[in-house]
């Protein structure tokens, strides 16, 4: 794994001295914040999550309370004051007269909820299957990994579309579809690192101590699989959010009653040819910021958590 050469071809010695007083977590944090782009992405992501959670207390309007919406306010360009004069539609309004700032914050809630919950369920399921397969070994392992490979050889969007064709619309259905699409990545990741870890000396040592297989798998191997799992989880969550938005845009995802960012963009599509760009544009920017910040965090986590790449 690591190159055991003290000097490079020029005879330089790699400076590798580090303060020994740091805990691994402190070192991880300081490594992570070494990169200002990644640090900014993490702060942005945190802000987006906070905004989504606090949306009901932040925005001027509950976009789904019909009493607060005036159809006369529909399709107002950004910066127009509302008809009641109570506040300004800084990002304009959509076809039903909803304030877009409010709709985006609420939409962010739904998008993040669907993405994160499907990610967590898929991670739990995939990791469990991957570990169980590795633990069982033999035919079962081969069979499970064949299924994983087979599923991964098909594009996620196709699998999701087929599931929705069968299951129908709805938040629960979308989450099921997203979990089905994602679990295989986690299973493969866990199994891959479990195989690597399983060959290491500390596992042999644990075996010599007479520990049970289950204990070795869950107490010794699983914790060492976590770093790659975390990296995959960030990337997969970004994927899930993007996929949900895509499905909703196609009209086969979330219903109008659960308007995620994808639904908002989809609603604006019909007004776009008449030049009313903002109805699709601003929810899209919110979606983009969310996905980019998660991807940047994941990208950098990969660098920081990967011991082979650490400098």
């Amino acid at each position: 794994m690591s190159v055991a050469e003290p000097t490079d071809p020029l005879g330089r010695v790699e400076p590798k001295a580090r303060a020994a007083a740091e805990t691994p977590f402190q070192r991880f944090v300081s490594d992570y914040f070494d990169n200002w782009i990644a640090a900014a992405a993490l702060i942005l992501l945190g802000a987006l999550i906070a905004l989504a959670l606090a949306a009901p207390w932040l925005v001027p309007q509950n976009p789904y309370d019909l009493a607060q919406i005036d159809i006369l306010d529909s399709r107002l360009p950004p910066g127009t004051p509302s008809s009641t004069g109570a506040f300004t539609h800084w990002l304009g309004t959509d076809g039903a007269g909803r304030d877009l700032v409010s709709a985006i914050f609420y939409g962010l809630r739904i998008s993040l909820f669907v993405g994160v919950s499907s990610g967590i369920i898929a991670m739990a399921l995939g990791a469990a299957v991957g570990l169980a397969a590795t633990y069982a070994g033999g035919r079962i392992e081969t069979l499970v990994m064949r299924i994983v490979d087979l599923q991964l050889s098909f594009p996620a969007i196709l699998v999701a579309l087929m599931l929705i064709a069968v299951l129908g619309k709805g938040v629960d259905k979308i989450v099921i579809a997203l979990v089905t699409v994602q679990w295989a990545y986690y299973a493969r990741t866990v199994r891959g690192s479990a195989l690597v870890e399983g060959r290491k000396d500390y596992v042999a040592a644990a075996r010599c101590l007479g520990l049970s297989n289950a204990r070795i798998v869950f107490r010794h191997i699983l914790p060492n699989c976590l770093p790659p799992l975390i990296v995959v989880a960030t990337v997969q969550t970004a994927h899930a959010i993007s996929l949900e938005a895509t499905l909703s845009f196609l009209g086969v995802g979330l219903p109008q009653t659960e308007p995620s960012l994808g639904v908002l963009i989809s609603n604006g599509f019909e007004y776009m040819l008449s030049g009313k760009y903002w109805i699709s544009f601003f929810p899209g920017i919110a979606l983009l910021l969310t996905i980019v910040s998660i991807n940047l965090v994941g990208d950098h986590l990969r660098d920081v958590l990967n011991p082979r790449l650490s400098r």
Binding site: A245, T246, G262, M272, S280, F281, G284, L288, I291, N295
Partner: peptide
């Protein structure tokens, strides 16, 4: 990196917006 993160459908809409409509 941006290309990996951009939702395809949204970029498509923006492309129509810019190159066809505007």
């Amino acid at each position: 990196i941006l290309g990996f993160s951009l939702p395809t459908f949204w970029v498509g809409i923006m492309m129509i917006m810019v190159f066809a409509v505007m």
